[in-house]
Simulated scan of single mutants.
Amino acid sequence: MTDIAHHIPEAILASYVSGTLAQPFALVVAAHVSICEDCRANLAAHEAVGGALLDDFDPISITGDLRNRVMAGLDDVVPEPVRPRGDDIFPTPVLEALGSKPPKWRSLGPGAKQCILNAGKEGSVRLLHIAPGFAVPDHTHGGLELTLVLQGAFKDETGRFARGDLEVADDDLEHTPVAEDGKPCICLAATDAPLKFSAFMPRLLQPLFRI
């Protein structure tokens, strides 16, 4: 058991196992699973169920050449990522997304900065760095947002989220996350649509920040 209080919903975990979860969200799920024993066990259970279902399908023959290439690939050594400073903060999936380099932070204004890891048709995933006591401006969502806390903690209208906790937000949630005192709050956040800010200035700057 872990001290993590907020976990991956079953539907999202099932989508991840089946390979249908969009890449930005899949990265957040992989990062959470890497530091959450409970969800790692739940993931293994989902994979076991999926494997049992595959046993019910008729086998498909493959060519000898394909079999040989697959078996040869199993012997390839995958190098461990070179961990940058602060490697105790970032799980291995995040380090790999960073290319084993420190984040390139860009300011979002006083007390906030971000590092975009990937952005495309499926959505975007980024690291957010919020100074203690600062808030993300009040907003709702145009779609799904997954936010995983990697350091520090924040509070919003739904509760408190600390290291390893995952917040799932959609267009039904309007909130103002505020970083707690202590260490800066660093989060991994994925969205499939732009946020909907309440205040004029964040809306004005939103295209520039791509958030």
Rank of each mutant, 00 (worst) to 15 (best):
D138K: 15
T176D: 09
E80N: 11
T158K: 09
P9L: 00
A41Y: 13
L98Q: 06
T191K: 05
P202S: 05
F154S: 10
G143P: 04
F209D: 00
A52E: 12
V82R: 14
L21A: 00
R126V: 12
M71I: 05
K113R: 12
A199D: 15
D170R: 11
L205F: 03
P194S: 06
G50F: 01
R85G: 13
T63D: 11
Q114Y: 00
P132W: 11
L188C: 08
E157A: 13
L148G: 08
E157P: 04
A135I: 01
V70Q: 10
P84G: 04
V49R: 14
E157M: 05
A131N: 05
Q206T: 10
P93Q: 08
D181R: 14
I4G: 00
T176Q: 09
P177A: 06
G111I: 01
E10F: 02
L173D: 12
G143F: 01
E10H: 08
G120Q: 08
G19W: 02
L144N: 10
D156P: 09
D88E: 15
L27K: 02
P91T: 01
V33F: 07
K183D: 15
G159T: 07
P102R: 05
P132I: 03
D156S: 08
H6A: 03
V29S: 08
M71S: 14
P207N: 00
V94H: 01
D75F: 07
S34Q: 10
A169G: 07
V82Q: 15
F209C: 00
P177I: 03
N42R: 15
D56Q: 13
A5S: 07
L208H: 00
T92C: 12
E174M: 14
L66W: 14
P202H: 06
I130K: 03
A14I: 02
V29K: 14
D87P: 08
L204A: 10
A119K: 10
S124G: 11
L148R: 06
L13W: 07
I35H: 07
L13A: 02
C185D: 03
T20L: 06
